[in-house]
Design a protein around this nucleic acid. Structure first.
Lengths: 250, 250
DNA sequence: TAAAAATATGTAAATTCATGCAAAATTCCT
DNA sequence: AGGAATTTTGCATGAATTTACATATTTTTA
């Protein structure tokens, strides 16, 4: 294994988890601990990481909600993120909403993927900005305090002027009969506009949210192309959802 | 668990709740109480927390100027922020750029000030969103990786459609002869548009940046209404700047 | 004032680190 | 392609750090 290769893996690991243990890296990369230590020293000399006793840490938190904040069901969301990333191809125009699941996707995008990603969420934008080959375009507008995403007429207008290849949204409610539902009127309208200006739409949601209904309807499930959960597509919990038609379970 | 990791968690806990009990931390972090005590001692030695019997407290509770952020010249920037906030009145339309000084302004806006604030910076937007009475509107666009502010034609277009009462910008270079200067072409154009669509413009800058010149010109100083530094307006360092005409030193 | 709680100090075990050196791998040059 | 130069790696050693426990002291509380 090349040194540069290790360095990239180490940096990635730190970006993802905010820290690494020398011992973990030794096992993961199957090199001696001395080598790892030398790697960490070099990366620290370049100012890329913060070396500490026992490993290394991320030097600064670039965006507010990053490390210490405990994300609910983080592991499930990371599984979802990895599945979702398989849908992303180079040169795509991608549109992302906000939320913790989508943040995990943003963080875990491979460094060699080059694409243009639109987002209505400042958090997502800042996470995406970490990737060298991703062009980030924020759809600005009134910032909703509760959801930290841009809403309002200006957002809708902007969205109506672009044609997206793949749109990735989270959801608060998802059920067979009611489709996608949410509780905030402004947010619902943004999501509607996101979907209707995209060729394909993927919904990411932990299985726990399935069969829950919120007050305001976004759309029927038939409009959705992919539903991505942490479970295997053939898990009985999802059996009602994977029909012959869209949406496809991933 | 890494020691620094514990430290960050402890700091976060203190920032959130203003105090921590050693016993709570012992349980939460599953280490011995001695370790917690050592951690608290180290953080106290660094001046980041205030150690008290039974745990530790936030120092900012007692001494407002003492952040743990690694912002360069933070104290000066906080002085600038407080001066700038005097310019803000309720019901104003305000426009803010990005940068560490402006972040301090955003954080320190009084809770009873109610205004609409536009910004081209996701960071600033998220900081502003913390204030209940501030309506935040993000001017979206291509996110510049180096500066983390939105740039490009769409930003200019949006800016041309609004009329701002007060525009607050930072700067990289400020000098009598060359006026405001910066090093990034895209950023310069955004700032130009910000200024030309605002009735009043305030420049915030630590004194250290005075008499420095960057490659690209933004505007002459005569266009600026207020220059705000951490120094007293009559400090000799600034003597050349405060003429009979604009700009006014604060 | 006495009991309880919190703190300080010392010690030993375990882990981690820095350094020097030789073997192995890689790169460079002809 | 072949060999020299350079870089990289693993190992050995001793030093340094970190942690939990035991014990003594101080502070708080009833």
């Amino acid at each position: 294994m090349l040194k540069e290769e290790r360095h990239k893996i180490i940096l990635r690991e730190i970006n993802l988890h905010n820290k690494v243990l020398s011992t973990d890296l030794r096992d993961q990369l199957t090199v001696s601990e001395d080598t790892i230590r030398r790697d960490l020293n070099e990366l620290a000399d370049l100012g890329l990481i913060l070396k500490v006793h026992g490993g290394a840490m991320s030097k600064t938190f670039h965006y507010p909600f990053n490390g210490q904040n405990q994300v609910y069901a983080l592991q499930a969301k990371q599984v979802i993120a990895d599945k979702t990333i398989n849908l992303l191809k180079s040169d795509m125009l991608i549109l992302m909403e906000g939320g913790t699941t989508i943040m995990e996707i943003a963080k875990r995008i491979p460094e060699d993927l080059s694409a243009t990603i639109f987002t209505v969420s400042p958090h997502t934008a800042l996470a995406l900005a970490e990737h060298e080959n991703i062009q980030v375009i924020t759809i600005g507008g009134k910032l909703s305090k509760n959801y930290n995403i841009h809403t309002g007429a200006s957002v809708i207008n902007e969205l109506n002027n672009i044609k997206i290849d793949l749109c990735i949204i989270g959801t608060n409610g998802i059920s067979l009969n009611e489709g996608l539902t949410d509780s905030d009127w402004e947010v619902v309208h943004v999501i509607k506009a996101m979907i209707s200006n995209s060729k394909k739409t993927a919904v990411v949601s932990i299985a726990e949210k399935f069969n829950s209904v919120q007050k305001i309807k976004i759309c029927d499930l038939s409009v959705i192309d992919y539903i991505i959960t942490e479970l295997h597509p053939e898990n009985p919990v999802l059996s009602a959802y994977g029909g012959r038609e869209k949406p496809y379970l991933l």
